[in-house]
Design a protein around this nucleic acid. Structure first.
Lengths: 232, 232
DNA sequence: GAAGAGTCAAGAGCAGTGCTCTCGTTTTTT
DNA sequence: AAAAAACGAGAGCACTGCTCTTGACTCTTC
């Protein structure tokens, strides 16, 4: 079935789904995930509450759509940040990606919370979320791979990777961390963990009355962690 | 008013509050924060739903009590872990504290989520939470201070602390990071951020299908981050 | 082009929630 | 002993996610 031959019903359905997610995302960005109500969305669309269940049979389904959107948004932000850097400026690419994530999170706190906060109890991420969820990490791994291939990574030797990690490392090396030694893959995961930990701390108020210059603090972190990664 | 002169009503009130929080914590640990219902707790106590509002005028008040408990529990776990180490084994103390946090989080995932997940929208942490919330960080800062005083920290020189951080550093140095140079304080914050980021990633499923040996991965992270801190 | 199948909005309804208000009773204070 | 405060119970309000049924509409198939 081509786009041209889509039936009228299918077209209005797609349009309605788009409108629902748009309204829902607006509600999300003002009231947070817990304040999102299918009835309120339906009300704003001039629908009766039960009608919305034709399009999203469950609140979780709506949330899933928003989660996928959020993952894609941060993934796109990271990719765009990376694209704006010289290919051989590995430290610059790493910093730009970190900043992009933080900037996106600060601009969309509730959407960030949706994907990096407490999982909604009972909510199990469906399969269609895993690809969008991996976009940012893939870009990050690419920077490390590129840097290593260019000889710009000095593999740290102070804390050898545990052998329990060998299997994971092999799988990751084949998929995204191409060519990297275990120790760098492991540190890459830790670095990635730090990025999101730092953004979460800032966004969720853990830095209140401790860090008053979060931007500078974050950049220092990103720089020092790059050094931790062996990026020179 | 001494304990002996407490009126009967006050004693039964304290007991009821204790019982309510106990039941609430049990519900929390099985259903999560969003599944916690004042009515369900009241029901389990044989109370009518409105009666519970005499003790916790709002759901947020109950949550606050649970949050304080959770902070104190993880704080106590960290303190106990630290106490079990030789005073001059700074790396050991750091590792023990990291492991204690992870172990507590794995044992009490929903309580961990309560204090390190998405803040409940509209919920503003009251003043009585900040002291319990600081316990773990204080212990961690103490290890760094002790290590530095004993000459066991080799201050990293690759990424100088930004001057925007000087004010925060001065305040922190006076309060908890006693005697430490800015660069170490800053890295201490980043290290602390990594710890909770790592535990959150593992607990919230971000490591799914990436890291299959979380314990070994976590320990490697703690060790390598200790090196990042300059702990020798 | 008409019949049948599928899709839709609407409405009523169920079980649950946080929270409020009132009312009669009990306990504490004065 | 009287006044004040605290309490449990019950009814009720506004809201939620979700289900079921009904009648109208649209698309497909013969």
């Amino acid at each position: 079935m081509t786009t041209a031959s889509r039936t009228a019903r299918e077209r209005v359905r797609a349009e309605l789904i788009r409108e629902i997610t748009d309204i829902a995302r607006r509600h999300l960005s003002t009231d947070g995930a817990a304040g999102l109500s299918l009835r309120a969305v339906a009300r704003e669309m001039g629908m009766v509450s039960s009608a919305i269940y034709r399009y999203f049979p469950t609140k979780d389904d709506l949330l899933t759509a928003l989660i996928i959107d959020a993952y894609n948004a941060v993934g796109a932000a990271v990719e765009q940040a990376d694209a704006g850097c010289a290919r051989d400026d590995f430290l610059g690419r790493w910093l730009a990606m970190c900043q992009a994530i933080r900037a996106w999170a600060l601009a969309h706190p509730h959407e960030y919370a949706l994907i990096h906060g407490t999982p909604v109890p009972g909510y199990q991420a469906p399969a269609d979320t895993v690809d969008p969820a991996a976009r940012d990490g893939i870009m990050f791994a690419k920077v490390l791979s590129d840097a290593h291939a260019a000889g710009a990574i000095q593999v740290p030797a102070d804390t050898p990777a545990p052998e329990e990690f060998a299997g994971d490392a092999a799988a990751l090396r084949e998929a995204i961390f191409v060519g990297l030694p275990d120790e760098v893959i492991l540190r890459g995961i830790h670095a990635w963990t730090w990025v999101y930990g730092s953004v979460s701390f800032e966004l969720f108020g853990m830095y209140n009355s401790v860090v008053t210059a979060p931007a500078a603090t974050f950049e220092h972190g990103a720089r020092s962690i790059a050094h931790y990664l062996g990026l020179r």
